[in-house]
């Protein structure tokens, strides 16, 4: 048996052309946030999660789990992200929605973290911010506390600290009637 082959087989060539950049900054923000979201979805990091609230993509809700071997272990915290139109050139506004007892976080949820303020850089993204915040829970910066009591107790009385953390914590999701899982 003999065989003659003539095969027009399609092949794909990977081109390195860059899609045209849109001039509108708003489109830029959306595009950037969409990419970030996609990355978060495709490579989920355990313990953190974030998702847009609605269609405009500029307001997100994030969830972090308290790191193990810290007073926050086993607790989950919700955060609100609000992205400015200049993002990623300016930092997003991040606040804790879940009440938390922490030296660098005040009672209305405002956070004192340098990368969210003067040390913000465009290379940070939602994921890195969330990871930073998660580590901040275990390693507070007691040098510049927003919550003096917390800063004091952190070193002096871990047991009392833990009690206050638990007393302060309320699970927001319970109020929504929804459950949470560890991602």
């Amino acid at each position: 048996m003999n065989m003659a082959n003539q095969a027009p087989a399609p092949a794909t060539a990977t081109k390195t052309s860059v899609p045209a950049q849109s001039s509108s900054s708003n489109t830029n923000v959306t595009k950037r946030l969409q990419t970030e979201l996609m990355n978060l979805m495709m490579s989920p990091t355990p313990g953190i999660s974030a998702f847009p609230n609605d269609a405009d993509l500029l307001n997100w809700t994030a969830t972090i789990e308290g790191p193990t071997e810290t007073p926050y272990a086993g607790l989950t915290f919700k955060l609100a992200f609000s992205f400015p139109a200049e993002y990623p050139l300016t930092a997003p506004q991040v606040t804790f929605k879940t009440p938390i007892f922490h030296p660098n976080i005040d009672f209305s949820g405002r956070i004192c973290l340098d990368i969210l303020k003067e040390k913000w850089s465009a290379i940070y993204n939602v994921q890195s911010v969330l990871l930073s915040l998660q580590s901040l829970l275990g390693e507070p910066n007691n040098a510049s506390p927003l919550n003096g009591q917390a800063a004091e107790l952190w070193d002096k009385d871990p047991a009392e600290y833990k009690r206050l953390v638990l007393a302060r914590h309320r699970d927001l999701a319970e109020e929504d009637g929804a459950g949470m899982d560890g991602m």
């Binding site: 003659a4 082959n5 095969a7 027009p8 399609p10 092949a11 794909t12 052309s17």
Partner: peptide, 20 residues
């Protein structure tokens, strides 16, 4: 070497074609 077989290819830019 391959007994006179010819090969014609369609070269498609993968970014722009629908999923194949």
């Amino acid at each position: 070497k391959s007994q006179g077989a010819e090969l014609n290819a369609q070269i498609l830019s993968s970014n722009f074609w629908p999923k194949l």
